[in-house]
Simulated scan of single mutants.
Amino acid sequence: MEEIVTMYQDFMKKADPRIADYPLMQSPFLVMGILLAYVYFVLSLGPRLMANRKPLNLKKFMVLYNFFLVGLSLYIVYEFLMAGWLTGYTWRCDPVDFSQDPKALRMVSVAWLFVFSKFIELTDTVIFVLRKKNEQVTFLHLFHHSVLPWSWWWGARFGPGGMGSFHAMINSMVHVVMYLYYGLSAAGPAFQKYLWWKKHITAIQLAQFVIVSVHISQYYFMPSCQYQFPIFVHLIWIYGTIFFILFSNFWYQSYTKGKRLPRVAQQAAQHNGSSIHENGTVTNGKVKAN
C-alpha cells in the first residue's frame, strides 16, 4: 500500500502546478466521490425519494438554469478563442504552453472553467429525477455526464490547453445551441414556434464528434508533433468514436424508429405528425407542458 501511495504521489508531481489551487483540482478522489454520489442519486436514491411524491414543478428554475448555461458556454468559447485558438494556435499540433505568459494562464483558467461547468451540468439529470422523468436518464445521458467530467479533470490537471483543448471548445459551442433549445422549451407554449429544430441538435452533436475526431486525427499523420500528451490524443479519438456511435443510435431510435416517443405520441404521429421535446410535448400544433 505504501508503494502504491508513493507511485501516486510521484505521478501527481507531473501535474500542472498552475491549476492546483483551483476548486476541485486538488485531488481526483474528490471529483470521483462527487460523480459516484451523482450516479447513486440518479439511479437509486433520487427515484426512491420521489416514488411517493408528486413531480416537482421546476419550470422557472429550468428557464434560469438553461439560459445561465447558454451564457456560461458562450463565455467559455470566447475564452478558448482568446486564450489561443484565435490568438496564436495553428489549429494543428499545438503544444500546451506551461509558461506564466498571460495567454497561457488564461488558457489554464478556461480549461478549469470548462471542467467546472461539467459538474454544474450534472443538474440536468437531477432535474429529470425530481420531475420524475426517469425515462430520460438513458445510458447515453448518464455515460456522457459522468465520463466527461472525470476525463477532462485529468486533461486540465496535466495539460490545460494545446491540441487537446479543441474538443472542449467545440463541445461548448454545441452546448450554447443545446441549452438555448432547452431554455426555450422550458419557457412554455409561447415559444413553440421556436422549437422546430430539436432534430438538428442531434445532427450538430454528431457533426461535433466528426470535427473533433478529424482534428485530433492529424496527430497520426504528422511526421512530428510537439503536443506533450499523446495519451489524451488517443482518448479524445476513442471518445469521439464512441459518442458518435451512441448518438447515431439515439438518432436512429428517436427519429427513424421513434422508440423514445410515448405510446400516445406515437399513435398521434401516425395520424397527425408530432414531435417530443425535452420539456414539453408538441402534438398537432398545440403544446402540452409536462
Rank of each mutant, 00 (worst) to 15 (best):
C93Y: 08
S217D: 05
I76C: 09
M7F: 13
M163H: 04
S224W: 10
S213M: 09
L64F: 12
I238S: 15
N57K: 13
Q270E: 02
V70Y: 11
L261Q: 14
H234F: 14
M178H: 07
G188N: 06
K257N: 05
F158R: 10
Y8M: 15
V39E: 00
Q226G: 10
H167V: 03
F191L: 11
F41G: 02
K103I: 01
Y75I: 11
P55Y: 02
Q100E: 12
A156V: 12
N272K: 14
W237L: 15
R157S: 09
Y239I: 03
F114C: 11
N284Y: 04
T6N: 15
I76L: 13
I211Q: 04
L69D: 01
S172T: 07
G164C: 03
T125G: 01
H215V: 00
Y252M: 00
T125V: 06
A15Q: 02
G285D: 01
T138K: 09
S185E: 06
F166D: 01
L184D: 01
R18S: 02
Q9P: 03
I211H: 04
G155Q: 02
V212M: 07
Q228M: 06
H144Y: 05
L72G: 03
M222I: 07
V177Y: 14
W196R: 13
F191Y: 15
L35S: 04
F29E: 09
L56Y: 11
K60A: 08
Y220G: 04
W85R: 09
S44H: 14
N279K: 05
I238N: 08
L35G: 07
V5P: 00
S44K: 15
G273Y: 10
Q136E: 06
S224V: 09
L140W: 14
N249Y: 15
L30E: 10
V137N: 07
S248W: 15
I245Y: 14
T6K: 15
Y181N: 09
M12A: 05
V115G: 10
Q205A: 02
S73T: 07
V5F: 11
A268V: 13
K118Q: 08
L142G: 12
P102Q: 06
